[in-house]
Nucleic acid binder design. Structure first.
Length: 414
DNA sequence: TCTGGGGTCCTAGGACCC
DNA sequence: TCTGGGGTCCTAGGACCC
């Protein structure tokens, strides 16, 4: 049997811990990062039921003494990077999942650093000593088990799953801890009287698949029996790029959605251009007052990364939504996403001269012309800042519910 | 005064091709 | 007159994750 060499490291209540690190007067107190919406809550706040995604208003109801703090987003990025870098001191096989979480495989590193459990403890001690942050670590033979172990270890702990006792560890835990079991699936399982992973394991794969669908059923049956073949994957790149904006309640009219879409298109397209990508499939999402959301998408032959092209297509798609839902007068969210990404060889040119010679190589002639203009704008922004220049109404779109710096933290690298 | 933002993957139906 | 089967791509919706 393989030995337990997979680590899962997860910074505890990350944003809130950073705030408590930066301002000692906040330590031991219930705090929430954010304002209108809670982006993160300290353990003291979680004890009151406060959690991320909750409205600030609802959080204050639960916890009247809750302290709201604006985020130090640059510090989150710096400290998150630094914590993950500590893992990298023990193995190159590090798979970062998000700003505050990563897997690592330390197989073959034992002769240098000791057994995986000791490496886990060393990592915890170093992150605490060098960065001042609590981090929990799970150690196991598979990613799934290591991730569950780190959840069990929280806050500020280490759990090692002995390969000889994996099912014993796994089967008494609630199904909700499994990767891929969210509220809906948990509810379906509960309706069948299945509360623990062990109870799920007793059911035949065919039965689970009939309840949850082929893929989910297959996956969960395998995980319940601790068959998790996923390897550590380094350097994952995004397969799509998107942006969204919650609007409050706004009338579903062009005067509202046009500038908002332009702003979103600008955000996405400049991200794509910065990494020389363009994409074929554009999807818009419109959410109505009752939180129901619809999507419309279009796949184009010649991929685009031009802000204006993206904005125009998005606008057309939103008009289709409006035509399909004539009774919906209020929208609460707009989103655009670009998928089927490809490298754009022309975008990388310092000065895209001579594009007219080969307009078909990538994108339409109009698309390339727009890209040239976009690149000029990108360069102005590089020198003078993002706010220095923009598309008319876009520059005016200043009502951000969440700061751009926070958005960037969630972006997967392209 | 309820409900953020950026992603991944799966399903199911229809179009289209061979 | 009635009737194939597999594969791929597109679209819309949904569940889930951090």
């Amino acid at each position: 049997m393989d030995s337990a060499t997979i680590l899962h490291a997860d910074l505890d209540a990350f944003y809130a811990s950073v705030e408590q690190l930066l301002d000692p007067s906040l330590r031991g107190k219930p705090i929430a990062v954010g304002g209108g919406v809670v982006l993160a809550a300290s353990y003291e706040a979680k004890a009151f039921g406060v959690h991320g995604g909750m409205s600030g208003w609802a959080a204050k109801e639960l916890c009247p003494e809750l302290i709201f703090v604006g985020g130090h987003f640059d510090q989150y990025q710096r400290l998150g990077d630094a914590a993950i870098a500590v893992l990298g001191d023990y193995t190159p096989l590090v798979e970062r999942i998000s700003i505050d979480e990563a897997f690592a495989d330390v197989a073959g590193c034992e002769h240098l650093f000791g057994p995986p459990a000791r490496i886990g403890e060393t990592i915890r001690a170093r992150v605490r000593a060098e960065l001042g942050l609590p981090i929990s670590v799970g150690v196991a033979r598979t990613k799934h088990l290591a991730k569950i172990a780190s959840q069990v270890a929280k806050p500020d702990g280490l759990v090692v799953v002995d390969p000889a006792r994996e099912l014993e560890f796994l089967h008494h835990l609630p199904v909700g801890l499994m990767w891929g079991v969210g509220p809906v699936t948990e509810g379906k399982l509960e309706d069948e009287g299945i509360l623990t992973i062990g109870q799920l394991a007793e059911k035949s794969p065919a039965w689970v698949q009939s309840l949850l669908g082929r893929a989910t059923g297959e996956k969960l049956s395998a995980l319940a029996w601790n068959r998790d073949p996923r390897p550590i994957v380094t350097n994952q790149r995004a397969r799509s790029a998107g942006a969204q904006s919650a609007l409050g309640r706004k009338p579903f009219v062009e005067r509202i959605y046009r500038p908002a879409l332009c702003h979103l298109a600008d955000r996405i397209a400049s991200r794509l251009r910065a990494k020389s990508w363009h994409g074929h499939t554009i999807t818009v999402r419109v959410r109505f007052r009752d939180m129901r959301a619809v999507t419309r998408s279009l796949t184009i032959d010649s991929p685009t990364a031009a802000t204006t092209s993206l904005a125009e297509i998005a606008e057309d798609l939103v008009r289709v939504v409006a035509a399909d839902h004539p009774d919906e007068r209020t929208i609460t969210l707009l989103a655009i996403s670009v998928a089927r990404l490809e490298r754009d060889p022309l975008v990388q040119l310092e000065l895209p001269l001579g594009l007219a010679d080969e307009p078909r190589r990538s994108g339409s002639r109009q698309g390339r012309a727009r890209l040239v203009a976009d690149h000029a704008m990108d360069r102005v922004r590089d020198r003078f800042g993002r706010e220095a220049i923009g598309y008319g109404s876009v520059a005016l779109e200043a009502s951000r519910s969440v700061p751009d710096a926070f958005r960037q933290l969630a972006e997967k690298s392209l």
